[in-house]
Simulated scan of single mutants.
Amino acid sequence: MSSVLVNRILSVGGSSGSLSRLQPHVNQLSAPPTTFRANQTQAAEKQQQTYEEPYVIFRSWLIAAQKHAPQVRPRLACMATVDKAGEPVTRLTCIEAVTPDGITFFTTLGSRQAGEISANPHVSLHFNWAPLMRSVRISGTAHQLSDAQAIDQFRRYPRHVQMSIAYGPRYAAADWRNRSGFFQRIAHGLKNLFGKPPEEIPMPANWGGYLLTPSLFEFGMLSGPKAARTRVRFRRCLEMPRGTRMATVQAERTDWVYDSMEECD
C-alpha cells in the first residue's frame, strides 16, 4: 500500500494528532546517532504494524468520530444478520470494546438478534460517519462471551442503564426522575454517605455479549474536489502462511491482505 494512501486512511480530519505521525519524540533529536537510529527503527516498525492491523485504523477513525462528530453516535452501527430463511436482517447495535481479538457488543440473549447469530454466526457491521465523509464495514463471525465477561461489562454501566437492562426503560426512567430533583439528590447523597449503599442491581440471566472476530475491514472515504470515493479493503487470508508475499497479493508479516480502489462520479 502506498504511503500516500496509508496516510490518507490514518489521518484524522481536522485533528492535530494522527496515528500516521509516528515520529520520535522531540528530545530524540539531541540523542546520540545510535539511539536515534534505533528509535527510528522502532517508529518504522510501529508504523508498519499500523498498516498491517486494520483494527488500529478502525479504532483511530472511531476516536476521531467521537471527537469531531459525537452527534452521530459513532459507536452505533447497522448490524446485518441472516435469518432461518436466508434473508438478511438489519438493526442498530451499539458496540463496546475494540481490541486485537475483535469487537464486542451486548444484547438480550433471547432476542431475535441473538437467535439469528446462534443459527448463523456470520455478522456484518456498517458504520456511517457522514460529517467526516467516512464509513467502515466490518464482517466476520460472532461468538458468545462468557458470563464473567458479561457481568464485568454490566457493572461498568451507569446505574440507570443497569436498571433499564434489568427492569425495562420505563422503570429506569421513573427511578431517574425520583433521583433527579434537587432535594431528591440531597437526600440520596446523605443516604449514601450515612446509610447503607444502594443495593446492587442483578444482571438478568438472559443478557450477554458477543465477540465479533473480523475477517474483513472495508474503509470508505470521500475526498478531493470531485468527491472521489476511495475504498481500502483488508481481508483475512487464513490459508496463506504468515509472512508470505506474492506479486499479486499484498501481505507482510500478518495474515491480512489488502487492496484499494477509487471511484469518481
Rank of each mutant, 00 (worst) to 15 (best):
M261A: 13
T34C: 13
H188S: 11
A64C: 11
I103T: 04
W129A: 10
Y55W: 10
E52C: 04
N27K: 14
P158V: 06
L92A: 14
D101S: 11
F58Y: 09
M163R: 05
M133K: 15
Q48L: 12
V136P: 00
S2G: 04
S15K: 08
L212V: 03
D255K: 06
P225N: 06
G220T: 05
R91N: 00
Y210M: 14
Q47E: 13
E53F: 12
L193Q: 10
F127S: 01
T81P: 07
A251Y: 00
L222K: 00
K84E: 10
E52I: 03
S3Y: 01
L211C: 06
V56W: 12
L10K: 08
Y210P: 00
C94H: 13
L5D: 00
A119W: 01
H143M: 10
C237R: 02
P74G: 12
G115M: 05
K226F: 03
Y171R: 06
D175A: 15
P241E: 04
A44E: 11
S20T: 05
R253L: 02
I201E: 07
P214S: 02
Q71I: 15
T244P: 00
W61H: 06
E252K: 04
L62C: 11
S3D: 09
Y55V: 15
P121C: 01
G102F: 01
G168T: 03
R236V: 00
T244K: 09
P214M: 01
N120V: 09
N128R: 14
I117D: 07
H126C: 12
G220K: 02
R159H: 07
L238D: 00
R73P: 12
V249D: 00
R229Y: 04
E96G: 07
F219G: 00
R134I: 10
M133P: 05
T35A: 14
Q153T: 10
N39G: 06
Q49H: 09
L193M: 06
P70A: 15
G181S: 03
G189D: 12
E199C: 09
F127R: 07
T81V: 14
N206E: 13
Y210G: 02
G115Q: 11
V82M: 13
E252N: 04
R155V: 04
Q149D: 14
M133Q: 13
C264R: 03
N178L: 15
T230S: 07
W256E: 04
L145S: 08
P24F: 12
S15I: 11
L10F: 05
Y55T: 14
H126A: 09
Y258S: 07
A80S: 10
R91D: 03
A172V: 05
K191Q: 11
W61T: 09
I151R: 11
A44Q: 03
V98H: 01
R73A: 15
D152T: 13
E45P: 05
S20D: 12
P169A: 10
G208A: 14
F234Y: 04
R231K: 07
A97S: 05
G140I: 02
R236W: 01
P74S: 13
A173N: 10
D265R: 07
I138R: 02
M221K: 03
S164R: 11
A77W: 10
S11H: 03
Q66M: 13
I103H: 04
T93R: 07
L76G: 15
T213H: 15
F194G: 02
E199S: 12
T248I: 06
N178Y: 08
L19Q: 09
P88T: 02
G243R: 01
A166I: 11
A227Y: 10
V249Q: 01
L222I: 04
L238G: 00
Q23E: 13
N27L: 08
